[in-house]
Amino acid sequence: MPTISMTVNGKPVSAEAEGRTLLVQFLRETLGLTGTHVGCDTSQCGACVVHVDGQSVKACTMFAGEAEGADVTTIEGLAPGEGELHPIQEAFRDNHGLQCGFCTPGMVMTAADLLKRNASPTEAEIREYLEGNLCRCTGYQNIVKAIQDAAGRMAAE
C-alpha cells in the first residue's frame, strides 16, 4: 500500500492507504479526525467539506492520494486554540445556526472559504455560496444570519 503524506491542521501526517481511499475516510478512519462528516457520500450534501490548499472541497469526492503533499484544514483545525472557537463557530452558536449539527462542520468550512474571498457578502451571495451544503433542520435562515454575524465579527477583529 502506498504511503500518503500531507499536512493536516498544520501538522505533518503520514500513513498507508489504498489508492481508492477517499480523503474523508483518510481523515476520519486513519487520522481519527471525525469532525468531518459523511452525509450523503454522493457529493451533494457538503457535510464533508474541508479546505485543501486553501480551497473548499468535498472530501468524499477526492482521493487521499490526490491530497499528497497538500495543506488540509478540517473543522478541528479552524479554532485558534484549545478551548476557543473560531468567530464563525461562535456566530453559529449565538445565532442558533445549528440544530442536529450534522451539517455544521461543512457549513462552517464553506462559510470560512466564502469569508476569505468576500469579507462582507450579501445575503444572496451567502445563499449562493451554500448551494452545495444541505441542512435538513434549520431552513437555512439562522445559518445565513450566523455567517452575516461572523462577517461582522471578523471585520471588527
Binding site: 480551497q55 473548499s56 468535498k58 469526492t61 477526492m62 452545495g132
Partner: peptide, 9 residues
C-alpha cells in the same frame, strides 16, 4: 457550474 466545492476540483 455545480457548487463552489465542485468548481474547485
Amino acid at each position: 457550474i455545480g457548487d463552489p466545492a465542485v468548481r474547485h476540483r
